[in-house]
């Protein structure tokens, strides 16, 4: 197949521009702590589990907060994905951060009373600034792929 002269010139120009932009591309991923295990958190039962059970299942907490006679442990993990284009005059980037976070609340006898959980590290996406990647339904699709998120 032989390309016509204008088509070849256009293809060369597109290739040259793509090649010139390539060194400006930047992609990065940052994680703080390992993602939390949703299935393990479901093992904990308010009114039954104790602080010792929680530590056995989830390990050492990130933070311990005294709440009068109550107390709470925080567990968290964070994931950030950054995609960008760094040119000489013009820079653009998309930074997306989501977290897994679990708060467990205890009474004065260190028995579990409440659990608050959010699992979202798997929802982080690479994108560029013109696209809002967190539309309705995207979270459900991502949840379906993560182990332990299904009830």
């Amino acid at each position: 197949m032989t390309l016509s002269q204008p088509t070849r010139r256009l293809a060369l120009t597109v290739a040259a521009v793509a090649l010139a932009l390539l060194p400006g591309c930047a992609i990065a991923r940052m994680s703080v702590n390992d993602p939390l295990d949703a299935a393990a958190v479901r093992q904990l039962q308010p009114g039954v589990s104790t602080a010792a059970d929680v530590v056995q299942v989830l390990g050492a907490p990130t933070d311990v907060v005294a709440l009068g006679r109550r107390s709470a442990y925080r567990y968290d993990a964070e994931k950030t994905k950054i995609a960008g284009l760094v040119l000489i005059l013009f820079n653009m980037a998309h930074r997306d951060t989501r977290s897994d976070r679990v708060w467990v609340f205890f009474d004065e006898e260190l028995r579990l009373t409440h659990i608050a959980s959010t699992f979202a590290t798997h929802r982080t996406r690479y994108a560029l600034p013109w696209s809002d990647v967190h539309g309705e339904g995207d979270a459900a699709k991502a949840d379906a792929k993560r182990k332990g998120m299904q009830p």
Partner: peptide
């Protein structure tokens, strides 16, 4: 500079 940021749900 053109930046989009999304932090937490």
């Amino acid at each position: 500079d053109w930046t989009r940021e999304s932090y937490e749900e």
